[in-house]
Nucleic acid binder design. Structure first.
Length: 153
DNA sequence: GCCAACGTTGGC
DNA sequence: GCCAACGTTGGC
């Protein structure tokens, strides 16, 4: 079992949108970075838990918890010509971009990015690394325990 | 809106 | 394979 942090712009998909979705699941569309894709396609396992992180908004931070609930499959938006995530170089029989569905687990106390930065226990999180832009990053068991057990308690 | 940091593209 | 130019991310 691994832990992850997944960024989403709340304007596109927030933790409340996930909670309100049919069966409380959403496909994690729109990842167009190979490293993030590899995490999602190859390293994730069904049952893994992830922090649902709000980015690109007035107050970025962790808003809740979700669970990986599907095997990887091709991101359908890459083939839709009018979709903002359309990728003309991706071929239907050789898809570039893969995703998984995530299931709502909980809306937690909101933990702002600025608060995460204050704790030495979290200093090595990839999320906090200088210049980090990856939308999906691994979280260690110790970091997961600290955030859920101490910061969210 | 600004800008630093980064990934990707494409000419050579 | 190099690297400059460009586009994007994302915090502030």
């Amino acid at each position: 079992m691994n832990f992850w942090l997944m960024k989403s712009e709340p304007d596109e998909a927030s933790i409340d949108d996930l909670a309100a979705a049919p069966r409380q699941t959403l496909p994690w569309t729109g990842v167009r970075n190979y490293q993030a894709r590899n995490f999602m396609r190859d390293a994730m396992q069904v049952g893994d838990r992830a922090f649902f992180y709000h980015s690109g908004c007035a107050e970025p931070g962790i808003a809740g918890i979700c669970e990986v609930c599907s095997e990887p499959y091709p991101d359908p938006t890459q083939f839709v010509a009018v979709d903002p995530y359309f990728d003309p170089k991706s071929l239907p029989d050789q898809p570039r971009w893969w995703l998984r569905d995530v299931l709502f687990v909980a809306k937690t106390r909101f933990v702002p990015l600025a608060e995460l930065r204050r704790h030495p226990e979290l200093a090595t999180m990839p999320l906090l690394a200088r210049g980090n832009r990856l939308s999906i990053t691994p979280v260690s068991a110790a970091e997961w325990q600290f955030i859920t057990g101490t910061l969210m308690a």
